[in-house]
Design a protein around this nucleic acid. Sequence first.
DNA 1: AAGCCGGGGAG
DNA 2: CTCCCAGGCTT
Length: 382
Amino acid sequence: MSKTLIASFAQKLLVWHQAHGREGLPWQGIKDPYAVWISEIMLQQTQVATVLERYPRFMARFPTVKQLALAPIDAVLAEWAGLGYYSRARNLHACAKQVMEQFSGTFPSDPRLLESLKGIGRSTAGAIAAFAFHERAPILDANVKRVLARLFAIEGAIEEKKVNDLLWGLAQELLPTDSERMPVYTQALMDFGATWCTSRKPVCLSDAYVCTFAKQCQANLSNQVLMLPQKKVKAKSPEFDADLLLMRHQNAVLLQRRPEKAIWGGLWSLPESPWRAKANKVDQEIQGHFFSPEEILKLTLPNENAELGHKDYQQVILGERIKHVFTHRRLWMQIWHMNSAKAVQFTDENLRWVSLHQLGQYGLPQPIKLLLQGLNPVRDDE
DNA sequence: AAGCCGGGGAG
DNA sequence: CTCCCAGGCTT
């Protein structure tokens, strides 16, 4: 490795940051560990533009770790709805309780202790320690992995442990000696990866600017920038079909809480059939139109079918067909509309009638939220 | 080591 | 369309 580059990297990066760093992001320059922690979790795998709107809202709703710890999980999930990766919200809540109980409500500064908390891995621990406590702890997010893989022309898929260990070692070596520089250095590193050393349109390949590291970057010197970092090829995501029951009783709709381990874990959604491998076109047309009300109930509410007796509903109407794309799956949801003559009381606490006006209090999957927003409430005087 | 977990923006 | 992202957890 280039000793010269390692020795001069932090200083050069800081000079770059002074001229080209991002400004005006609401979580920049924050010292409150709680506020730093929320921003770091929210920004995991999530775009800045999205977080820009949601971060202030979350902080206003849960201003302190104590208030977050005392809040019901449904309130946290409702505030998190639409952000995805809902284990983050569940872990956030659990972590707040941990901080209250194990650390008397004060975040520890030691990255190893931070890493012992729910939902905080090595990189997030490093970020919190650096931003809030000026600790000389490295981060290794996608930005840093890309920057380092290019600077040092590191071969091999970054998913491999050997490569990952190498990157962590470099991230540690490159840290500024002066711990007081850690917040701005960490911010600069992310800014550089996010705005200059980007995945598909890095500055070194345009003529807008000359990259600060053009003469040191091994990938640039060997014309390999777009080929690094290397990644393993992912399998094509499988496709599934599912049937969802949209049961209404006046202004209320029947919601069901999803199991924690599943996709959309812990959120409230419509009763849903098991997923099945997507059928071909002919099968779709055959199945699509021949479900009876009994069959829909049996598919989506197998254990509650008896409670929701046959006399309580009239007919089933073939509704929307919604395509939803996940990172590793594609799902086609067939919505079946039914009306219930009465609001059957369920013994299952995971089933609940919810007024259309109170949907905001529930964490709903984004496509379900959009679907239910399109429903017209029945007027009270009708 | 590999799979799982969302959603939206960029190209 | 595909790829990408201020990752971490589970198996």
